[in-house]
Nucleic acid binder design. Structure first.
Length: 567
RNA sequence: CGGGGCGUAGCGCAGCCUGGUAGCGCACCUGGUUUGGGACCAGGGGGUCGAAGGUUCGAAUCCUUUCGCCCCGACCA
């Protein structure tokens, strides 16, 4: 490709709303252009990069025997009503009606559609397992699109769905996908971790996220310094917390604690470490048909993890409860405790089970209990509720846990029979009995990966692509476009490389040297060949984008050297 | 969804407070000089000032409504 013909509108200035490097450089480098909130066009180079990433994903998926299909972006609302997600999904689900007033949705994911595809067509266990996937457009009406391609509303995802006769087969495919995803992200040259994750509203049991470690990640991940344990904070576990501080020995009793509403107030008053107190967090849980105030109890020095809390009570959503709602539920803010608490749904963190010598609210204004022991609560009240933090201990090996930022690029789920059951999709098993399918589902954010590649690899001059994903692997810069000798040398080499199928760009524009170099650095081709004034003495230069190191080579050696670098 | 900000040329902005019919930098076009780090000189094109309504002799500027975009938070399969 000649640069003079390439539509790559590069700019010196970034759009003012671009805050992340990936967003700035992809726009400045002429890869993408914004057309609306969370909506982006891919320009020629953006499309090349996108296709390269997509091909890596496709190749690895095909190797596993998964078959590519394409489902419609527009899907009838009826399917969503069958699965029950029409009401559950919330405003992210973009709904609309056609001219005949029929209801549709823009697919944010395709479990319903794929179940409809196999329903009544796969009738026997002999036809299983089956894995269908697609790489297509999705639409989610995000509350707040941001970060360019990282959180757009329209995006491209690889989503695969597998069908199985039993749980064991489902788990096998899950393991295959974990390996496959590892291959894909390794091929793309990314620094990533597979982490334990919350399944969210999609449902199912086991789930793992693939996180690229990056400063600007949206997710917090807990990583053990000692062993392989890694998890999203939403699902992270830890070894039960302990303390060296002496427990306050006291008989059970009620004490007046005027106006002491915080853990700090109370622990200072009783001169007791917050570890030995119980913190109450009041939330309003929202269900399909009702709203309800729910109380969560954790140690005084712990924090509630909201996703865990939401899972504990099975709510669609948790929001902060207003003071008014708290009072209406018969609670006294600042003096709430599990002992004697009635008529309110509540949950207690697992680590408080059988704990002794605690202080908690007495459910009476200006009073706290001391010497509380946690014995007589029902088993189902105990749930994992705490937010794991840096320096907590690993549940697997006791090592120190650290917290780092990650960008989710892949997520694999074991869905079980949830969708097949809801939608009546069954097959006949070996005993001739109708069974709902066991399903797995596996996603990769393909368009998001375009941005992630840059988030993970850039400097203050621009993008740094690797040869696997670069729009062009080599940028040939003719320093003086009026110089016949330089042009002739460049053209000969360009033609040779081009004919051999090397993805090379020839900057033949009549711009000055510095201008072309800046574009090379901004766009971030892995290598540049500079054909300049030293050609007269028989030399050209090869520049590596990553290090910006320049190597002078004899002009007749340039071809061999480039072939070696680009191999 | 709560709080805030911004819409003036392709991009980045000034002008608005105190109304008088629009300007700067970059980009673009023509000619010339230049050619190893985003050149220089000369000339030139391009904006119904987001939209609608109102006040006024007169509105980018004041008032009302509306649309869009962005930031912080909540949210985020």
């Amino acid at each position: 490709m000649k640069f003079s013909k390439l539509y790559a509108p590069t700019t010196k200035d970034a759009p003012k709303d671009a805050t992340l490097p990936s967003h700035q450089y992809l726009v400045r480098g002429g890869f993408i252009s914004q057309v609306g909130s969370g909506l982006y066009n891919f320009l020629p180079m953006g499309k090349i990069v996108f296709d390269k990433i997509k091909n890596v994903v496709k190749e690895e998926m095909d190797k596993t025997g998964a078959q590519e299909i394409q489902m419609d972006v527009v899907t009838p609302a009826e399917l969503w009503k069958q699965s029950g997600r029409y009401d559950v999904f919330g405003k992210e689900l973009c709904r609309f009606k056609d001219r005949k007033e029929n209801e549709f949705v823009l697919g944010p994911t395709h479990e319903e559609v794929v179940v409809d595809i196999v329903r009544n067509r796969i009738n026997s266990y002999k036809q299983l397992p089956l894995h269908l996937y697609q790489i297509t457009t999705k639409f989610r009406d995000e509350a707040r699109p941001r970060f360019g391609l990282l959180r757009g509303r329209e995006f491209t995802m690889k989503d695969g769905y597998s069908f199985h006769e039993d749980e064991a087969s489902m788990k096998e495919e899950f393991a295959v996908m974990e390996k496959t995803y590892t291959k894909i992200f390794t091929r793309l040259g990314l620094d990533f971790r597979a982490v334990e994750a919350d399944s969210g509203a999609i449902g199912g049991s086991g789930s793992k996220e693939f996180m690229v470690l990056a400063q600007n990640g949206e997710d917090d991940i807990v990583v053990c310094q000692n062993c392989a344990y890694a998890a999203n904070v939403e699902a992270a576990k830890r070894a039960p917390k302990t303390t060296a501080v002496q427990a306050p020995e006291a008989n059970f009793g009620k004490f007046k604690t005027p106006d002491m509403k915080t853990i700090d107030d109370v622990s200072a008053f009783f001169k007791v470490d917050p570890f030995y107190s119980i913190k109450a967090v009041v939330k309003k849980a929202i269900y399909v048909d009702k709203e309800e105030v729910v109380v969560f109890f954790v140690r005084g020095d712990d924090e509630l993890q909201e996703t865990k809390a939401q899972n504990a009570c099975g709510a669609l959503d948790l929001v902060d409860a207003s003071l008014e709602e708290v009072e209406k539920a018969g609670l006294y803010a600042g003096f709430i405790g599990p002992v004697g608490l009635e008529n309110v749904r509540f949950y207690i963190d697992l680590e408080l089970k059988e704990a002794k010598n605690l202080i908690c609210g007495a459910n009476e204004v200006d009073y706290h209990f001391v010497g509380v022991s946690m014995f007589n609560f029902k088993e189902e009240r105990y749930k994992d509720l705490v937010s794991v933090r840096a320096d907590d201990r690993c549940a697997c090996c006791g090592g120190t846990l650290h917290v780092t930022k990650g960008i989710e690029v892949g997520h694999i789920f074991q869905l079980g029979q949830k969708y097949a059951k809801a939608m009546g999709a069954t097959f006949l098993d070996k005993n001739g009995k109708a069974q709902p399918f066991y399903m797995g589902c596996y996603g990769i954010g393909v368009s998001r990966l375009v941005a992630v590649m840059i988030e993970a690899s850039h400097d203050d001059k621009g993008c740094i692509w690797n040869t696997q994903t670069a729009p062009y692997v080599l940028d040939m810069i003719v320093s003086n476009s009026k110089d016949d000798a330089q042009n002739a040398f460049a053209e000969a080499l360009y033609t040779k490389l081009h004919d051999e199928g090397v993805n090379v760009l020839w900057d033949d524009r009549s711009e000055r040297f510095g201008f072309k170099m800046k574009d090379f650095e901004l766009i971030g081709f892995p290598y540049a060949l500079i054909v300049g004034k030293e050609l007269e003495e028989g030399f050209v230069e090869i520049v590596e984008r990553k290090t910006l190191d320049k190597t002078v080579v004899k002009k007749e050696d340039a071809y061999a050297k480039l072939k070696e670098l680009l191999a």
